[in-house]
Amino acid sequence: MPTVITTDKLTKRFGAFIAANELTFEVEKGEIFGFLGANGAGKTTAMRMLCGLLSPSSGAATVAGFDVYTQTEKIKQNIGYMSQKFSLYDDLTVSENIRFYAGIYGMSIPAIKTKTTQLLEELQLQKEAKTLVKELPLGWKQKLAFSVSIVHDPSIVFLDEPTGGVDPVTRRQFWDLIYAAADKGVTIFVTTHYMDEAEYCNRVSIMVDGVISALDSPAKLKEQYNAHNMEDVFYELARNAKRKAD
């Protein structure tokens, strides 16, 4: 399997504060990679570096084959991003949102049209194509936001707590979408506070105090920490975290 994310001692310092310390890991193509960590552990900083939004202080990393120091524009072309806070434009309709995001990634007008029809079909939103996004239930919005974030067929998609506040059924439907995307070869890089969702990942890394303190498949991690579930693993690793501020 080819790797799509490679980092080598990736570090970010803010003055004397080391937000992310010598992160070294690889993510394979089509993998669902869970990126967990306590609040303030440095997850957001690491994610921003990988998305080309923040320049690292030292170390190396490539995302989709592009360097995070020099090729950030290329990286942005090849990744998708979705967070719980930012989803879609509330005052645009469903199809206008799709058209807009496809448009900013430079897709051609016929391609946008086919893609829009295809997406609406996949999400069973054909009837809602002309509905304003603000009138959709939250769960639908999140699913739509995810589909929009991969509208330009990126090789990696970064999901920052995508299922916060969503009901349990929709949450699972959301993961169905993630699986489907992963099957198509899209690499999923996801953060979450739901520990059962950590189990759905192929591999999970857990950051504590700016370093990756564990990285393996959920099964191996549970074995290693002699734990019932990922929640116990996480608790074991993060409870002694020193860092209390973001």
Binding site: A38, G164, H193, M195, F234, Y235, A238
Partner: peptide, 10 residues
């Protein structure tokens, strides 16, 4: 506890 990590939630 929304948006707070597992340890803090516990």
């Amino acid at each position: 506890t929304t948006g707070v990590d597992v340890v803090s939630r516990k």
